[in-house]
């Protein structure tokens, strides 16, 4: 474990907590893409299948349980509990255009042709594009609540910090995972536009309004 990965995991944890608090306090999922949250639930489910077969640490196991659990609670909030506030008219990204190519790529490009490894690879590739429906929704509605912007900033920062973690681990541990690094770069690049708006606008108290 290194500081980059720890701060990255905490940023990821914070993002999820911000989202859940926003939903619970405002009793609304307005502006949140249910499709992205479904993709995140798929990402965690397919990545943490080794939850019961390989033990790394208490931290690792507890975080995995938390991420899987909260991802399903979030989907439940959007499609059941706070369904009347779900804005399906603006959450129209065609996720099949993500899942099919990502599934095909995971089948062709992986570290080992085994079920668990292909599912893990699928999860890594899917996570890199899972935020697209959410970013698409923000561009369609033309704006995002500031709390949603904070959620996106924390979520985008987590994988950017993981890039630093991989640089650190490469030089100090000789650890290198090309699939995770490439997908992590794609994932972080997708946030660049948002990061720019967040830093130039939200931090000055303005609202984000992506070009609709």
């Amino acid at each position: 474990m290194n500081i980059f990965r720890l701060v990255g995991d905490m940023s990821h944890l914070l993002a999820i907590i911000i989202l859940l608090m926003k939903m619970w306090k405002s009793r609304s999922v307005a502006g949140i893409s249910g499709k992205s949250q479904i993709l995140f639930a798929i990402v965690f489910t397919t990545r943490y299948l080794d939850l019961f077969t390989s033990f790394v640490s208490i931290y690792n196991t507890s975080m995995k349980v938390f991420f899987i659990g909260t991802s399903y609670v979030t989907v439940y909030f959007i499609y059941q509990h706070f369904k009347p506030t779900y804005d399906s008219n603006h959450d129209t990204f065609r996720v099949e255009f993500l899942i099919v190519p990502v599934g095909g790529l995971a089948f062709l490009v992986n570290h080992e042709f085994s079920l668990l490894e292909i599912l893990w690879t699928f999860s890594i590739y899917l996570e890199s594009v899972a935020i697209l429906p959410q970013l698409f929704m923000v561009s369609k509605t033309g704006e995002a609540e500031s709390i949603t912007s904070h959620y996106l900033f924390a979520l985008g920062s987590y994988r950017a910090l993981y890039l630093l973690n991989w640089i650190y681990r490469y030089y100090f541990e000789g650890f290198f995972d090309l699939i995770a690094v490439v997908a992590g770069c794609v994932q972080t690049i997708l946030y660049c536009d948002f990061f720019y708006l967040y830093i130039t606008k939200v931090l000055k108290g303005k609202k984000i309004s992506l070009p609709a």
Binding site: K64, N165, D177
Partner: peptide, 10 residues
């Protein structure tokens, strides 16, 4: 035994 990078990250 799986030869790829070890899976110890989230």
């Amino acid at each position: 035994e799986f030869s790829g990078p070890k899976k110890d990250e989230l």
